[in-house]
């Protein structure tokens, strides 16, 4: 469970463009978004619609042209907010980067302080990666890399978790495991924002559905894909709580 007194981060008036003068292209136009603990928002949009750019702004990795950030406790300038975002928001790439070394070593980078070994063992168990603990992380499949990244997030316990196309190129089994892990984050009070070009994914996890069109957010009702068998995972849920 995240121990931060902040349970919500409000972003207002986010604008971001790339290029200079004549070649300037507006990617995000005066966009507002609120991320609330324990809620999962699905962000859909076509390829190149600016989903990744928005996620990188929300995680403090790139600077917007303008934005206001409010935590419910105070209003922050971008400089102040960036520090908070770096600490409280975690951004997971479509294919998470794995450092040289074993899965255990990759998890070690996310831990500081006492009981590192026990916490890493618990994270391995949580993500069902115990059998992969000593495997070279760069050699894992896409789904396993995503689970390592989620285990790192589980160790860091951020207030907000941003995921960029987390289940693209995954088979159904890996997708269900990833969704189960995301449900576990939700239950522990983490705010989730999942970017996906396919609105049919994540229906078990999402509370809101936003669509990014021409740099603006549009609220969309959650669409259930009736072709899928049911809303229950066919795989056993091994997940524990934080």
């Amino acid at each position: 469970m995240n121990n931060s007194p902040i349970s919500q981060i409000q972003f207002s008036g986010i604008t971001k463009s790339f290029g200079k003068r004549k070649g300037k292209k507006l990617i995000i136009n005066d966009l507002d978004i609120t991320l609330t603990g324990g809620e999962c928002t699905l962000l859909t949009g076509k390829n190149g619609s600016g989903k990744s750019t928005l996620l990188r702004i929300l995680s403090g990795l790139i600077k917007p042209d303008s934005a206001t950030i409010n935590t419910g406790l105070q209003s922050l300038s971008w400089k102040q907010a960036r520090k908070l975002l770096r600490k409280q928001v975690m951004y997971l790439y479509q294919e998470p980067y794995m450092f040289d070394g074993s899965v255990r070593r990759n998890l070690l980078y996310a831990v500081s302080g006492a009981n590192a070994k026990q916490r890493i063992n618990r994270a391995l168990q949580w993500a069902d990666l115990e059998h992969r603990a000593e495997t070279e992380a760069k050699c894992l499949s896409g789904g396993e890399k995503q689970r390592v990244a989620l285990a790192q997030a589980w160790l860091k316990q951020p207030l907000v978790l941003l995921l960029d196309e987390p289940t693209s190129n995954m088979d159904d089994y890996s997708r269900h495991i990833t969704e189960d892990l995301l449900l576990s984050f939700k239950k522990s009070g983490t705010a989730l924002l999942v970017a996906s070009h396919d609105p049919n994914h994540f229906y078990r996890v999402t509370d809101n559905n936003l669509s990014l069109i021409h740099g603006e957010l549009i609220n969309k009702p959650i669409e259930l894909n009736t072709d899928l068998p049911n809303n229950v995972s066919p795989f056993p849920n091994k997940l524990g709580q934080h």
Binding site: S59, L61, R86, K87, M90, Y91, Y93, P96, Y97, F99, D100, Y109, A110, S112, Q152, K156
Partner: peptide, 26 residues
Amino acid sequence: AEIRAWDTARTLAGSPIRSFFIIMRE
């Protein structure tokens, strides 16, 4: 090393110094 490596190190490590040593190892 990809820019993803630095971003990931920054996200995981907490401090810039620890991130620098993670990338140095990489």
